[in-house]
Write a protein that binds this DNA or RNA. Structure first.
Length: 302
DNA sequence: CACTAAACCTGGGAGC
DNA sequence: TGCTCCCAGGTTTAGT
């Protein structure tokens, strides 16, 4: 579900509710949603291993590590931020919740206590504040909330590529990353690589490549500098525009207030397979590239 | 190195 | 209505 604009929207909509608030209690219905350390990895058993080296607090013992609530309850939310598709919730005394929502994860804030009958199916964790509560919901159970030391966050995320909306993200940095990591690979798969640039997923790569007029299966090494410039511009413009519309809701995505994103109406190719190109009226084509369905205009994108 | 498939999961839509 | 099959916004690992 959430790509950069959606995670950014969740971050912004959550902030006024929980910043500077104390986590008074928490309820865990599916413990595997909480991970003790290391990079979040649903398939790696060592992430739930108490012997993992990237532990929460250096002075915590094994027994404490079996109960993640002990690192969270009583701490204050001191900052919320986003890096790529990760949401970072900094707590007092040096603990951070490093959250990746993967496909269907949601963080929904409720002002008032929710009675059991109103708790959504697939709610895995509830964080209770003095007033209000934050629900972590994830039908497909791909997402993870990783409890780490704040000081370990930079090293945990060091492999991520540059923030595309950062003012210092220039086209030549994108070109360099593409050249370093991908040569014969398609531009589609290269842009999905979080180490090239952080935050793009299947929706926005398709939209970016349409805006840049570049066909998704083009090998990176064949791209002209002028095309890299167009791709770089498109990344920044489309992500910023989508944030202005609170992201894209196809099915599951909601912000912290449960609201859908409105950028879906602005999508020009993603999900429009078989429909006509809004520029030239050519029928849009869908093709599997890099294991993901890609939709593009065979006329506008060469 | 580059690419593919599979794995992690559930639910929705299409087709019969 | 109900069944089966296929698909899905992400990421990592294993295999070719």
């Amino acid at each position: 579900m959430p790509e950069l604009p959606e995670v950014e929207t969740i971050c912004r909509s959550l902030k006024p509710h929980i910043l500077n608030k104390v986590i008074a209690d928490m309820a865990v219905f599916w413990p595997e949603a909480l991970v003790g350390g290391g990079m979040p990895d649903a398939t790696n058993p060592s992430d739930t291993n108490p012997g993992n080296t990237n532990l929460v607090d250096a002075d915590l013992d094994r027994d404490e590590l079996a109960f993640p609530a002990s690192h969270i309850v009583g701490r204050t939310v001191v900052n919320l931020s986003r890096r790529g598709k990760y949401l970072l919730v900094d707590l007092s005394k040096g603990v951070t919740l490093l959250i990746h929502l993967r496909m269907t994860g949601q963080l929904i804030y409720h002002d008032t206590p929710q009675i059991v009958a109103n708790i959504a199916k697939h709610t895995h964790v509830i964080f209770y504040f003095e007033e209000g509560e934050m629900h972590y919901v994830d039908p497909r159970k791909f997402g993870r909330i990783q409890i780490v030391r704040t000081l370990d966050v930079p090293s945990l995320l060091e492999k991520l590529g540059p923030e595309p909306l950062d003012e210092f993200f220039e086209f030549d940095a994108l070109g360099l990353r593409l050249a370093e990591r991908h040569k014969t690979a398609s531009i589609k798969s290269a842009l999905l690589d979080q180490e090239v640039v952080a935050g793009l997923g299947n929706i926005y790569t398709d939209e970016v490549l349409f805006a840049a007029g570049v066909r998704p299966n083009r090998p990176v090494q064949d791209l002209k500098a002028s095309e890299i410039i167009l791709i770089h511009q498109a990344i920044r413009e489309i992500l910023a525009e989508s944030i202005d519309f609170q992201g894209t809701t196809f099915r599951d995505y909601r912000d912290a207030n449960g609201k859908v994103g409105k950028y879906k109406k602005s999508l020009k190719v993603y999900g429009r397979n078989g429909k006509t190109c809004i520029v030239c009226k050519t029928k849009l084509i869908s093709e599997k590239i890099a294991g993901r369905v890609s939709c593009y205009c065979p006329n506008c994108q060469q």
